[in-house]
Structures are given as C-alpha cells and as structure tokens.
C-alpha cells in the first residue's frame, strides 16, 4: 500500500504542480505536518518535494508506523516559530494544535486541522481530507480503494456472537467505543468491555473489574523503554490465570489512518474467529 502510493507519487513526478486535474486551486508546494497522523497520511500521499517537514513523533518507533519513511524528511516539534521559519504554504495539524496552531493562523499561514480519528470512518475521512488539501485526490482515492479491498478480503463478521475484548495498558487504561482502537475491535467482531461498563471514550478499568469480566481477548500494547510501576499492571500474574487469550498489538499499528491499520484489523479478526470457536484459516 505504501509502495502503491510511492509508485503513484513517482508517476506523478513529471507533471508540473499546476497540472493536478481535480483541483481548481494550485496545490500547496511547501507542506509542513505537525501531527503524527497527518505526518503519516501526508508521507503516503504527497508528491515528491511537496512535504518539507514532519513531526518528531513520525520517527518514534513507539508511536509511528512509518519510521523508515520519516527518515527522509526533516523533523519539527510543532512550535510556531520553527514551523513559520520553514515558510510553509500549508500546515497540517491535528485537532489539538493549541497555541502554536492559533499563532500560525494569526501569522497568516494556511492551517488545515485534521481531527484525530475515532473510528474507521474517521480514518477514511482523514485520508480524503489530507488528499484534498494536498491536491492529491487520485492518490487518496487509490489508498481508500486499497483499504476497501483489504477490508472486503477479511470477510469480517456482521452479526452473531460477539466475544468480549478489552485493550489493557498502563494504570489499567482501556480504549472505549468512541476510539479508533475500539472501532477496530468492533469491526473485527468483538464487543467491548468499555462499552459494557458504560464508558464513552477511553478510561481506566480496575484490575479486578477486568478479571471479573473474564474477556475472551485482552489486547496489550508496547511497553516503553525504561520501567514504570504504572505498566506493571499490564503483566500482573492474575491475567495469565484467565481463560481468555492475550495478544500484543503494537500501538503504531492502530493509532493513525495508515495501511498498517488493516494489519491490526486482520490480526484481530483472526483472534475473533479463534474466540468464536473457529480456528484460524477456517472460513466463518
């Protein structure tokens, strides 16, 4: 998928910037992204030379699914001063730009804010939004078509028994229904412990509540380097005494609208089949 976008970008290379057919306005020539998710969408969609900087998070293996690609771009830390000095004609920001984004607005820089995705639909919308902002609608459409093809190939369950699942992180943090991770789990065929407990967004679940719910699947993330007591709860021995399975899904896979999001979905769809009693590989 990344490769497809890169090839698409390479094919578009000889065309002058003004020739993008679907846009009326001239596409931006110097784009700076200051948000992890817009970083990754822009790296997948932008024309060569169009993207001049991505945020430092794009190079963090703990957060980013595109660390290798991010090596090709200078990084920024989202501060208004450094971004302004890059002389961008478009800044891509997340929904929580705060003071820096407000300042860039005041300085007359064009800023497009792409809200962080809280569902698979949001993820699609973000890809389309960034594609339009970059004047790269065909590339965005190709990325979305690839998304759809891969989702269709997963033959995701639509109804039936939905085994219980929960994500489980430091201090007992668990993704709620209105989050991208929650939506991916639901799409894979699970019901969410956070939904059952009446949580809207993400929140904290006590270890006892998690054990009592005895979910069919517990999804843990990547521990950070160094150590913390907050993360010790993730490996509490009580969890391995439970009957359900524990799988590890690295956070970068399902934080942002990247092609890797579908890898996370595929992995969890396999788990849903196992939890429902169909071994992996069976057609449900």
């Amino acid at each position: 998928m990344v490769r497809a976008a890169v090839i698409a970008a390479a094919l578009a290379l000889p065309l002058p910037a003004m020739a993008a057919p679907a846009t009326t306005a001239t596409p931006p020539r110097r784009v700076v992204s200051v948000n992890l998710c817009t970083d990754q969408i822009a790296m997948a969609l932008a024309a060569p030379g169009q993207l001049v900087s991505v945020s430092h998070l794009a190079r963090e293996p703990q957060s980013s699914a595109m660390v290798a690609e991010a090596q090709h771009f200078p990084i920024n830390h989202g501060r208004a001063e450094e971004v302004y000095l890059l002389a961008p004609d478009l800044v891509l920001a997340g929904g929580y730009g705060g003071a820096s984004v407000a300042l860039l607005h005041r300085l007359g820089v064009r800023v497009i804010e792409v809200p962080p995705p809280n569902s698979l639909q949001d993820a699609r919308d973000a890809i389309a939004q960034v594609g339009a902002a970059l004047g790269r609608e065909p590339e965005a459409a190709a990325m979305l078509a690839d998304f759809d093809a891969r989702m269709a190939a997963l033959a995701l369950p639509t109804g039936g028994d939905r085994p219980l699942a929960a994500t489980w992180g430091a201090n007992g943090y668990s993704s709620g229904g209105a989050t991208l991770a929650g939506d991916v789990l639901r799409a894979a065929g699970f019901s969410l412990l956070a939904d059952r407990l009446g949580m809207q967004g993400s929140g904290y679940i006590t270890l006892e509540s998690l054990v009592m719910a005895d979910p069919a699947l517990i999804v843990t993330g990547t521990p950070y380097p160094g150590a913390s007591r907050a993360e010790e709860i993730v490996t509490h021995p009580a969890l391995s005494s439970l009957s359900g399975r524990i799988v590890h899904v690295p956070d970068p896979l399902w934080t942002c609208p990247t092609p890797q999001l579908l890898d996370a979905l595929a992995l969890l769809a396999t788990e849903a089949r196992i939890a429902a009693g169909h071994p992996a590989g069976d057609t449900p």
């Binding site: 007992g172 950070y224 160094g226 150590a227 913390s228 907050a230 010790e232 709860i233 021995p237």
Partner: peptide, 25 residues
C-alpha cells in the same frame, strides 16, 4: 529523566505509597 513517559506519574506512588495491584511476586 526516564525514557518512559509513565515513570513521571510514578512520583506519586514513590512518595505516597500504595498497595494496589501488587502480586505474590
């Protein structure tokens, strides 16, 4: 100074103490 972002949250634990979610280990 820890590379772990959660380590700073642990300051409360180390200065005030807690027995939550400890195990036989």
């Amino acid at each position: 100074l820890s590379p772990n972002p959660f380590a700073a949250y642990d300051i409360m634990f180390w200065t005030m103490g807690s027995l939550a979610d400890r195990s036989w280990a």
